[in-house]
């Protein structure tokens, strides 16, 4: 279980997180929604230690995320970045097998390549993609490679940062379905941040709405449409009228 307790984070005068409290139960898929610039990515990166909160605590299975063996902690996570964040200088298979080629999870090179090709196949890519470089791939293929990299070491917890941004609706649907299938298949805990409502409906078990630096609403995805929360209702309907200012 991932738990945020009164997490605050500011960048200069801008207060991004102002007391976030949230629980993500083990094995569940939590989707955090909210407008651009509301701190969704900051919350996610705070768990991984990429950003340090100013105050508050984040625990994973009851242990403080900032303490203990960093390598062992990070080995439990996989992450799909918004733009893929593939390493330009490495061929696709080495991107996918990056964690398996070095560090505590190191495997023989041939075995790592076989695992990479299997994971590529899992996300719908053929083995001939393995030796291409990221710059030779389309945006959708890069997302799939990023997804393959995120699951390569079979992590317990997977984070997805805006998984469908920049993709056409059909490719978005494919990525959403893949994410859902993989999370269910692996029994992983998933945390996704997005403002794409089709992703929310496809991926989420539970939804949390982040606005003004706090979680405004959280609950099962099935209750989202009838929540009665004015922030969530406005966000889902995409209306300019409501408590969320249209110009931010």
């Amino acid at each position: 279980m991932i738990t945020f307790t009164d997490v605050h984070k500011s960048f200069g005068p801008k207060k991004v997180l102002q007391g976030v409290n949230l629980e993500i139960p083990k094995g569940q898929s939590m989707v955090i929604i909210g407008g651009s610039g509301t701190g969704k990515s900051v919350a996610l990166k705070s768990v991984l230690g990429l950003i340090s909160p100013d105050s508050g605590t984040i625990t994973v299975d009851g242990k403080d995320a900032t303490k203990g063996d960093r390598d062992a902690f990070l080995a439990r996570f996989g992450m799909l970045f918004q733009g893929g964040a593939l390493f330009d200088s490495l061929p696709v298979w080495q991107n996918v097998a990056f964690r398996l080629l070095r560090g505590s999870l190191k495997r023989p090179r041939d075995e790592a390549r076989d695992i990479a090709i299997e994971k590529l196949r899992r996300v719908g890519l053929t083995p001939d993609v393995a030796d291409l470089f990221p710059s030779e791939l389309s945006g959708g293929m890069q997302k799939r490679v990023g997804l393959a990299r995120a699951i390569a070491a079979e992590p317990e917890i997977i984070f997805f940062d805006e998984p469908t941004t920049g993709l056409d609706p059909i490719m978005s649907g494919v990525i959403n379905d893949l994410i859902r299938e993989i999370v269910v298949e692996m029994g992983a805990t998933a945390m996704t941040i997005t403002h794409d409502m089709s992703s929310v409906r496809a991926i989420a078990d539970k939804v949390a709405m982040l606005h003004d630096g706090i979680i405004q609403w959280t609950g099962p995805v099935g209750e989202m449409d009838n929540s009665g929360d004015p922030y969530l209702t406005q966000f889902i309907s995409g209306s300019a009228e409501g408590p969320i200012e249209a110009v931010r």
Partner: peptide, 17 residues
Amino acid sequence: ATMKVTEQIDALTTLST
């Protein structure tokens, strides 16, 4: 710098590197 703005450096960290 390009690696930083495209989140590749964050990706390195999450991959325990």
